[in-house]
Amino acid sequence: MEVKEIIRPENLVYKRTPLLTDAYLSYCPGCGHGTVHRLIMEVVEEMGIQEDTIGIAPVGCSVLAYDFMDIDCSQAAHGRAPAVATGIKRLWPDKYVFTYQGDGDLAAIGTGETIHACNRGENITIFFVNNGIYGMTGGQMAPTTLEGMKSSTSPYGRNNETMGPPYKITELVAQLEGTHYVTRQAVHKPGPVRKAKKAIRKALELQKENKGLSFIEFVSNCNAGWKMTPNDSNIWMEENMFPFYPMGDIKVDGKLVNG
């Protein structure tokens, strides 16, 4: 069968969601941010909630997220996205409100906002993309940088004695009463991508039921910051990030999975 005969509208099985704008993604080749953007927009499209969804863009690589997602968006000061989301959700309780943050934004400068929004159990969704480094500003060490991992501010590798160990904010917020659904996902392979999409859908559906805060971490790569090719960075991530940041649900229906 000729390729021309296959490429017909009736045979279409997958195409880019129209909820992603035509803007050229500003991310480096192979960066997981683009995949997470697409998954969120696919879920919003499938649920038919484009007009009722409000996203909060962070500061960092994904600062321009509002340019790529065709939904209502706001942009918050560095780390303050959960506070802005709190205000918007309280004014419009019927809207679906999510924040989209990186690890420098959520786990460093925004730790206070994150922990208190989670503790209050605001009925929002937090999407947290963790690549263990400050990507946009040139690969500096983040709180999530692994021990021994080289970055521009830890050129000999992170030393836990002088710089403190990396911390798992996802496990931390799971301990708080206000969180209802906490999970950790990845988007580097087809299987994990499909699982991550289900988690996104579950999180947004929980908002409709006013269950509390849902928190999804995506362990992702930063090939530019890690100084690797996209595929090497994905392999490195599997070998080094996943043992420290294990995949799977941490809290479901308000109960810790391993508690």
Partner: peptide
């Protein structure tokens, strides 16, 4: 190798820039 494609959509779901459209019969 166009002959070998099964239209499984794996390439499209992992593409960070969403550039791949998949057809299957």
């Amino acid at each position: 190798d166009p002959e070998s494609c099964t239209g499984c959509t794996n390439c499209a779901v992992v593409c960070p820039d969403g550039v791949i459209t998949v057809y299957r019969v």
